[in-house]
């Protein structure tokens, strides 16, 4: 049991726990906060895997922007809780069973089939260096320049779309 492995297991435990917390919280605000924790944990995993840029992006975009937006909407709509209903009584047990099967199946498949040789990073390697970051930037702006620009267009389109969606039509009652 190397320190790395111990760290990994602890973090994995935290990640699963926060995910389950999001799943079972009755209050949507708690769910959102659990999810923020989960995202931060994942960001630490990214650092462990030698992807500092992605880790930062994860924290600023996901944990920061997106989840703030979620909380904002939850509070705007006042939809923290939903009243209990009794539609689709078989949905919950069936979904649970199937999800467990899915998890087992995919684990088994990945364990037996998808085996990229080698392990993730040799112990003690300096991973999160500036050189590493620079190399990734070279890849992004050389090989993936066009998709990158398209992404910006996508964001613009999304912005315009949102504005159009929530805009109040002329003469429409609020």
């Amino acid at each position: 049991m190397t320190p790395n492995l111990i760290l990994f297991l602890i973090l994995a435990l935290v990640a699963v726990a926060t995910a389950l917390g999001m799943l079972f919280s009755k209050n949507a605000v708690y769910s959102a906060l659990f999810l923020v924790l989960n995202f931060v944990t994942v960001a630490v995993f990214y650092l462990l895997l030698g992807a500092p840029f992605i880790a930062m992006a994860q924290i600023t975009v996901y944990a920061g922007a997106i989840m703030v937006l979620f909380l904002f909407v939850i509070m705007l709509l006042g939809a923290e809780r939903l009243p209990d209903t009794h539609v689709l009584p078989w949905q919950k047990p069936l979904a649970t069973v199937l999800t467990v099967i899915l998890a087992l199946e995919s684990t088994y498949l990945l364990w037996t089939k998808a085996r990229p040789s080698g392990a993730v990073l040799p112990p003690g390697a300096e991973v999160n260096t500036v050189d590493n970051l620079r190399a990734m930037a070279m890849t992004l702006f050389n090989d993936y320049l066009l998709p990158f620009e398209v992404t910006s267009v996508l964001l613009l389109v999304a912005m315009v779309g949102v504005i159009v969606l929530v805009r109040r039509e002329k003469g429409q009652k609020s």
Binding site: L88, Q91, L94, L98, L102, E105, L109
Partner: peptide
């Protein structure tokens, strides 16, 4: 939700088939 469940049933079956 039930539509999504049926998608999941399909996924489970396909994975089972692969295994």
């Amino acid at each position: 939700r039930s539509y999504a469940l049926s998608v999941l049933v399909g996924v489970v079956f396909i994975l089972g088939y692969l295994i």
